[in-house]
Structure formats: structure tokens, C-alpha cells
């Protein structure tokens, strides 16, 4: 159990939130020119790192807003939460 800081509601319990995978994946703009391989890349392939990961979260039982978080997938430590559309926060020193 840990506490997650919702950018809108502040500190709330983990059980109010759900995680929805990697963040900052932009939809291709010229979709009619994509090959099947490029579509597959966009839809199915994720980095799945052991370590620092930018991810999408939703405050499902709270304000129901989506936001992004920077989390270490190995230790579960959350380094930042920020609104969708905001720039990626920098990685903390010593992390990659």
C-alpha cells in the first residue's frame, strides 16, 4: 500500500487509482500512409523497462482525471505526478 499524489486532489490511497500503461505515446498523424508494421508498433509495442517508467494513471475512485506519473517499476517508488499535456519531468539523478 502506498500513497499517490493526484495532481488535482492531493495525496490519496493507491487503491483509488488504476494504471494504464506507458505515457507519451503520440498517435501517428498521417495514419493512411502507415504500414501494418508501423501500426503494430504504435498499438502493441511498449518499452516495458525494469526501472524508470513514464505511465498513465487515472484517479478512478476520486476525481476521475487522467494524469501521468514517473515511477520506478522495480521499487514502485513514484518520483513525480503531473497533468496530461505537461512536459516530462527529468529523471532524478542517478536513475536511467
Amino acid at each position: 500500500m502506498f500513497i499517490i499524489n493526484c495532481p488535482y486532489c492531493g495525496d490519496r490511497d493507491q487503491t483509488e487509482f488504476t494504471c494504464h500503461g506507458e505515457a507519451h505515446i503520440a498517435r501517428p498523424t498521417e495514419t493512411e500512409q502507415l504500414s501494418d508494421e508501423q501500426w503494430g508498433e504504435y498499438i502493441f509495442f511498449r518499452t516495458n523497462p525494469k526501472g524508470m517508467h513514464y505511465e498513465r494513471w487515472v484517479h478512478a475512485h476520486g476525481c476521475r482525471r487522467w494524469f501521468n506519473a514517473l515511477r520506478n517499476t522495480a521499487t514502485d517508488e513514484i518520483f513525480a505526478t503531473y497533468e496530461v499535456g505537461a512536459a516530462k519531468p527529468a529523471l532524478p539523478e542517478g536513475e536511467s
Binding site: T15, E16, H61, G62, C63
Partner: peptide, 10 residues
């Protein structure tokens, strides 16, 4: 006010 979980209810 706060939107929270109580038991299994939102």
C-alpha cells in the same frame, strides 16, 4: 468534499 472509496462503494 472528497470523492473516495468506502468499502467497495465510490
Amino acid at each position: 468534499c472528497a470523492q473516495i472509496r468506502y468499502g467497495n462503494a465510490s
